[in-house]
Amino acid sequence: MRRHPLLPHGAATAVGAFAIWASAFTLLYIVQALGCRFRGAETMLLHRATMYGVWIVHLVPLTLLLIALLQSSVPMRRVAILGTAAALGATAWTGLPLFFASACQ
């Protein structure tokens, strides 16, 4: 396995992976708040769809990162892999309420 040319140190990768989770979390919260602020009957679907979009858009890079890590070597590789997997799981889990909770009440 070769040292990946782009990926940084494993600890930094784990931090970066969780930064993606933080982005997902923050954007979901922001879109939820803004959607309720500028809500109309015709935008309700759009509001929810945007949130699903934000959620999925964040799952993609984490998945790609995990695949890249599994195929290459970086310092503290296990930390990088575990951290990315954890961030991926956390991002997936954070989206769960989308399926069960009303957006503006």
Binding site: F25, L28, Y29, Q32, A33, C36, A90, W93, T94, L96, P97, L98, F100, A101, S102, A103, C104, Q105
Partner: peptide
């Protein structure tokens, strides 16, 4: 605060 927003924070709090 709306339930969905609470849901995000509830989820993170459990996580």
């Amino acid at each position: 605060i709306p339930h969905l927003a609470l849901g995000f924070f509830s989820a993170a709090s459990m996580l």
